[in-house]
Structures are given as C-alpha cells and as structure tokens.
Simulated assay, not measured.
Amino acid sequence: MNTSHRRSAYACLALSMSLVGSYVALSKPLAAIFPVLLLAWLRFGIGAIAMLRWLRKPADEAPLSRRTQGLLFLESLFGNFLFTICMVTGVSLTSAVMAGVTMAAIPAAVALMSWLFLRERVAARTWLAIALAVAGIGLYALSRPDAGANSAASAPASPQAWLGQMLLVGAVLCEAFYAVIGKRLTTSLGPKRITSIVNLWGFALSTPFGLYLAWHFDFGSVAWSIWGLLLFYALAACVWTVWLWMTGLRNVPASQAGTFTVLLPISAAVVGMCVLGERVTSMQALAFAIALLGILVATWPGRKRLAQHTSASGASPF
C-alpha cells in the first residue's frame, strides 16, 4: 500500500470516529424524546431509504456466499443492535464515567481479536499506541467533575451496577467484533455494499420492537427541529460513518484502525464544549493530548509498513 492510500485510509477512519462522537453528543435530545429501540428503528429506516441504490450488486461482484451473508448479519447484530442495547443499558445501571473508562479498552480489544481471528501481527508500536489511547481516555473519564469528590452524589446507587459493568464490557466486545468482521468483509465487498446490507439487517432486527413502540408513541408532539436532528443522526450513524470506516479498513489492519476509536469520546467532548456549553478542564485536555499521541504513534511512517494485510496469512475463523 502506497503512502497516499495509507493517508487516505487514516483520514477516513479519523473522520468516521469523529462523526460518531459528534452524533452521539448531539443525540441527547433525541434519546430524551424517543425510546432507544424506536430511535434505532427510525434511524435504520431512514438509512435504508438513503442507501437504496447502494443495495444493487455491482456487475463485477461475485454472488454472496453463505459465509459472507452470515458475516453481514453478525456485523449488524454486534455493531448495531447489541452494541446499542449494551451501551445504553450499561450506562443507565452505572454511570457515564464508568462507561468512559470501560470504552477505553476498545483499541486493546480490537487488537487482541485481530490477532486471534485475523492472524494479524500487531506491531510493538501499535501496542504502544493502544496503551496511550487507553491511558488518555481513562484519565479523561477519571478527571471528570463527577468522578471526584461529588461522585457519591452523582453516581446512581444501583444494586445492579455489576450487571451494568458487564453490559459495558459486552459493548466493548461488540465494537471489537464489528471492527474485525468488517475487516474480513472488505476483502470481498465494497464499502457501499457492506454499509447498505448491514443497515438493512439492523432495520430487520429492530422492526418488531420499533413497530410496537411506534404504536404507542405520539409522533405529533415531536417538534420539527427534532425531526431535522433525527435526519442528521440517521444519515451520520447509518451512512457516512459506516461507509468511511469500511473504506479505511480496506487498507489498514483492524488492530491499527482500532486506535482511531479514541476520537469518539474526544469529538463528543469537543461538540459538548462548543455546542452544548460544557467545560473541559486542563487535566481533560492533557488526557486528550495523550490519546491523540497514541494515534500519532500508530500512524507515523516508519521504515517498515505498519499495515499487515491478512488475506495471505492463512485461514481465519471469520
């Protein structure tokens, strides 16, 4: 892979995770109005309409094998459906601080699963980048105001906190599976085709819940501004971020791509500061700098290519 392709892949991965963080921060008003599974159903429905043309099979693409069809289903099950349920429910039973600390493990989980399932050789520099990413996001979460002296007042005293923590760990594993399975899919399908089919599976999985919740929901009480925000959320979550992520994964090992997930909480915090009026302390700024240093370490060009293609490295469970 030449330098221009590598830089383009890095840009796609960075923009994808930055968009994820942005729409997560801006989705707070949506989550306050729509039930989670109804919101997911509406999101996938809008995405399906936007990507109707992407569903068409290109002339040079081979018919989908049963294995590929199964991977597409698993990609949507883990990356869309189960991740949303685990994350939202886990936060409700613990705290946002605990979620931030737990999500810091995503780069390491992606690297480990890439080594196990894709047979990728994870370079020492990538492990260093992962360590910096985990340290940065962990420091950010622990330096939040509600993680200090006021933590007792702000954290919910839930007797099911252990269950919430397990669900957050499940969300980390779901995100890691999403990256690893996505890497395998990019060897046989184009990014647009993957994005559209995965979204269609998400729509199918959420339809039973969405129809039930829609029957009991008062859509007439929703303001036009909220519908506009929903449109942006759906296009960003279902179309732009997935397409960018799959495009970047075509030319970057999944383990290296995982370091870019640190941009999710960083971009969410920046949007919260610039749009929602939240404040970022000097300690949090230092945490962001450490996390960004991890990306710099992972992507800095060296004598040898950091990108290790897995297509010729032997059989894989995926």
Rank of each mutant, 00 (worst) to 15 (best):
residue 7 R to F: 10
residue 9 A to H: 05
residue 9 A to Y: 06
residue 11 A to V: 14
residue 13 L to P: 11
residue 17 M to W: 11
residue 20 V to W: 02
residue 24 V to F: 07
residue 25 A to D: 05
residue 29 P to Y: 06
residue 30 L to R: 02
residue 32 A to Q: 14
residue 34 F to L: 09
residue 42 L to V: 07
residue 43 R to Y: 06
residue 44 F to K: 03
residue 45 G to M: 04
residue 46 I to L: 15
residue 46 I to G: 01
residue 49 I to P: 00
residue 57 K to P: 08
residue 63 P to Y: 05
residue 64 L to T: 10
residue 65 S to E: 01
residue 72 L to F: 11
residue 79 G to P: 08
residue 85 I to R: 10
residue 87 M to T: 12
residue 87 M to G: 04
residue 90 G to L: 13
residue 92 S to A: 15
residue 95 S to D: 09
residue 96 A to F: 05
residue 99 A to P: 01
residue 101 V to M: 12
residue 106 I to P: 07
residue 108 A to K: 04
residue 112 L to I: 15
residue 116 L to Q: 06
residue 117 F to E: 02
residue 117 F to N: 04
residue 119 R to T: 09
residue 123 A to R: 15
residue 123 A to D: 13
residue 125 R to Y: 06
residue 126 T to L: 01
residue 127 W to T: 02
residue 129 A to P: 00
residue 132 L to S: 01
residue 135 A to Q: 08
residue 135 A to E: 06
residue 137 I to V: 13
residue 137 I to C: 02
residue 137 I to N: 02
residue 138 G to Q: 08
residue 138 G to D: 08
residue 139 L to Y: 13
residue 141 A to D: 03
residue 146 D to P: 02
residue 146 D to I: 04
residue 146 D to F: 02
residue 147 A to G: 10
residue 148 G to A: 06
residue 151 S to D: 01
residue 153 A to F: 13
residue 155 A to C: 03
residue 156 P to R: 09
residue 157 A to P: 03
residue 157 A to Y: 00
residue 159 P to F: 13
residue 163 L to P: 05
residue 164 G to Y: 08
residue 165 Q to D: 13
residue 170 G to I: 07
residue 171 A to Y: 09
residue 173 L to C: 13
residue 175 E to H: 12
residue 176 A to V: 05
residue 183 K to H: 04
residue 183 K to G: 09
residue 188 S to Q: 13
residue 188 S to L: 06
residue 190 G to W: 00
residue 194 I to C: 06
residue 203 F to Q: 04
residue 205 L to T: 03
residue 205 L to W: 07
residue 206 S to P: 01
residue 210 G to E: 11
residue 211 L to T: 09
residue 211 L to E: 12
residue 215 W to L: 11
residue 216 H to Q: 15
residue 218 D to A: 15
residue 221 S to F: 00
residue 223 A to K: 13
residue 224 W to A: 14
residue 235 L to M: 12
residue 236 A to T: 12
residue 239 V to W: 14
residue 241 T to N: 11
residue 244 L to A: 10
residue 246 M to V: 00
residue 249 L to K: 11
residue 250 R to N: 02
residue 251 N to S: 15
residue 269 A to L: 13
residue 269 A to N: 04
residue 272 G to R: 12
residue 272 G to M: 12
residue 274 C to H: 11
residue 276 L to P: 00
residue 278 E to G: 04
residue 283 M to H: 11
residue 291 A to F: 08
residue 295 I to T: 04
residue 297 V to F: 12
residue 297 V to M: 11
residue 299 T to I: 03
residue 300 W to Y: 13
residue 301 P to T: 09
residue 307 A to Q: 11
residue 311 S to K: 10
residue 312 A to K: 08
residue 316 S to G: 07
